[in-house]
Design a protein around this nucleic acid. Structure first.
Lengths: 117, 117
DNA sequence: GTTGTACTTAACAGATAAGTTAATTAATAA
DNA sequence: TTATTAATTAACTTATCTGTTAAGTACAAC
C-alpha cells in the first residue's frame, strides 16, 4: 500500500526471470530446483531471484524436509493493478483524439488552425 | 507487447519520482521545469528521469520554442494492466481459502483435520 | 551581436543489481 | 558417521542506476 512497497514490487517485476517464476507458481507450489530447471542459470542466481520476490511479498516459502516450497502471494500484484487502474482512461479511448474532439466542439466549423502533420 | 518492453516499463515505474511525474502528467502536459518544481532534485536528474520514461514509451515530448512539453503515453501502462490481470484470480478471493473450501467439499462434515490458526 | 531562459550532455562518485564459482548449512539415507 | 540432495551464503566481477556539478546547446528577447 505504501509507495515504498510499490517500488519493491515494480522492481521485482522488471526482471523476466522473476516474472517467469511467478507464472510458474501460478500453476501451483514448486521447489527451488523445480523453479530453476527451465533456466540456464546457476542455482544461486535463482535463489537470489527468489529472495527478491520474497522481500517484495510476491512469494512465501514453507519448509518440508530439505525442500523449501515456494508459493505465489498476490497481494502486491493487487496493489499494482490498483495503481495502474488510475490510468485506464488514458488508454480506453485515445486521449489525443479526445482532446481534438473537445477542441473541435469549441471551434466554429471550417475555422480550425493548421496542425503539424 | 514484448517481454523486453515489459522490463523497461516495470523498471521505469519502480522509481517514486517517475511515478509522481506520471501522476502530474495525468493532469495535462507540462514542461521540464514544471515537472521538476515539486522535487528537491537538480534539473539534470529530472531530465534523466524523463529520458527513462521516454525510452519506456511512457511519455512523449514536443517542441515549442525553448520548451519541451511532456505528455503521458499510456500504451505501456495498458500492457502492465493486461499482464497483471492474469493474476486477478489469486487476489479476487483468497486462494488459500479457495483451496480450503474445495477440500471441505471433498471431506465428510465434522471430519476435517486441524488447521493452523 | 549579447544576455537570459530552458533544457541536455559530460564527467564523475557511490549504491545497487545480477551473474559467476566455491564453500556452507540443513535434512535424508545408508 | 559418512554420503547425498536441497538450498543458501560468501566473495567477487561487471554493469547499470541515481544523483551531483559544470559545461554545452537551442531558442527568445533585446
Amino acid at each position: 500500500m505504501t509507495e515504498d512497497h510499490l517500488d519493491a514490487t515494480f522492481a521485482s517485476l522488471a526482471d523476466p526471470t522473476r516474472r517467469a517464476i511467478l507464472a510458474r507458481l501460478a500453476q501451483g507450489e514448486a521447489t527451488v530446483n523445480e523453479l530453476a530447471e527451465p533456466f540456464e542459470m546457476s542455482l544461486p542466481a535463482i535463489s537470489r531471484h527468489l529472495k527478491v520476490l520474497e522481500r517484495a511479498g510476491l512469494i512465501s516459502r514453507g519448509r518440508e524436509a530439505q525442500w523449501r516450497p515456494c508459493r505465489l502471494e498476490a497481494g502486491p500484484l493487487k496493489d499494482i493493478a490498483n495503481w495502474v487502474e488510475r490510468y485506464r482512461r488514458f488508454w480506453d479511448q485515445s486521449f489525443d483524439r479526445m482532446a481534438d474532439y473537445l477542441k473541435e466542439l469549441q471551434t466554429p466549423r471550417g475555422d480550425q488552425d493548421d496542425r503539424k502533420n
